[in-house]
């Protein structure tokens, strides 16, 4: 079973977000990690490989430092990796990223393509679906359980207010939701072995990917106002409860 895992490198969840002088997101000093949802995908690929045999290939798009995250996936047990590193690819343009990934994934046959359903940095959740469309593959999002057999995958997925069990013929793209598994921690043995595994570095041109003009334009980054010390609601329990309910509804808009 040939499994590809699409992986994105993201800021650490605890990263302090700052802006540079020219209003861009400042990545200086920020710890970079594998997007946690993609890590679920890596783990799932490894488990499927352990069960069914085959190969796990990690595919990623991004600047050179993404190699670190890719190596981490290799340390977890993936067999080899392809990283497309090209400044011409705008990470904010999910269609371009999907186009590049599609080229890599078309270059050899895969039975299954896995990724996280969303990346924690831009929270867009677009690339897997765009990739599925480009490759004309069926997609199943937010999987919490994947079983493979008879040329198809049986996937338990989160839907709104429900859990669905769906069947999809392979090859297909399945995206991981939290709860799919608990990703392993690379052993030192794995880290050592990962240093020797194949990591192919390519550019968009190497792949002959047509990027086209970016369809989205980022006009501005800004920081939200600093978290206020919070409103203390005073009064009798009944009154403060009423006020809290009102604020949650009208101000915070969360209920």
């Amino acid at each position: 079973m040939q499994i590809a895992v699409c992986l994105k490198q993201t800021f650490d969840t605890e990263a302090k977000i700052k802006l540079t002088g020219d209003g861009q997101i400042d990545s200086a000093g920020v710890n970079l990690i594998i997007n946690p949802y993609d890590e679920f995908a890596v783990e799932e690929a490894l488990r499927l490989k352990e069960k069914l045999g085959g190969e796990v290939v990690v595919v990623s798009v991004g600047p050179a430092q993404v190699q670190e995250s890719v190596r981490q996936a290799l340390a977890m047990g993936a067999d080899r990796a392809v990283l497309v590193s090209d400044p011409a690819v705008a990470p904010s343009d999910h269609s371009q990223v999907a186009a590049v990934l599609a080229k890599v994934l078309q270059s050899e046959p895969f039975d299954l393509i896995l990724s996280g359903w969303v990346a924690i940095d831009d929270n867009a959740a677009q690339v897997p679906a765009r990739l599925a469309e480009k490759l004309n593959l069926p997609q199943v999002n937010m999987a919490v359980k994947i079983e493979i057999g008879g040329g198809k995958a049986t996937v338990t997925r989160e839907a709104e207010g429900a859990t669905e069990i769906v069947e999809v013929p392979l090859p297909a793209i399945i995206t991981a939701q939290k709860g799919l598994n608990e990703p392993r921690y690379p052993s030192l043995k794995g880290i050592m072995q990962a240093k020797k595994k194949e990591l192919k570095l390519l550019t968009a041109a190497d792949l002959g990917a047509e990027l086209g003009a970016s369809q989205v334009k980022i006009l501005q980054y800004s920081l939200p106002p600093a978290r206020q010390a919070g409103k203390k609601i005073e009064g009798e329990p009944v009154d403060s409860a009423r006020e809290l309910a009102r604020l949650l509804r009208e101000e915070a808009k969360v209920i």
């Binding site: 608990e182 392993r184 921690y185 690379p186 052993s187 030192l188 043995k189 794995g190």
Partner: peptide
């Protein structure tokens, strides 16, 4: 267990990370 097998209580993984 940690370096060769990567097998340890789940909470330790959080702390390591």
């Amino acid at each position: 267990l940690v370096l060769t097998e990567s097998r340890f209580p789940a909470e330790a993984q959080t702390a390591f990370r």
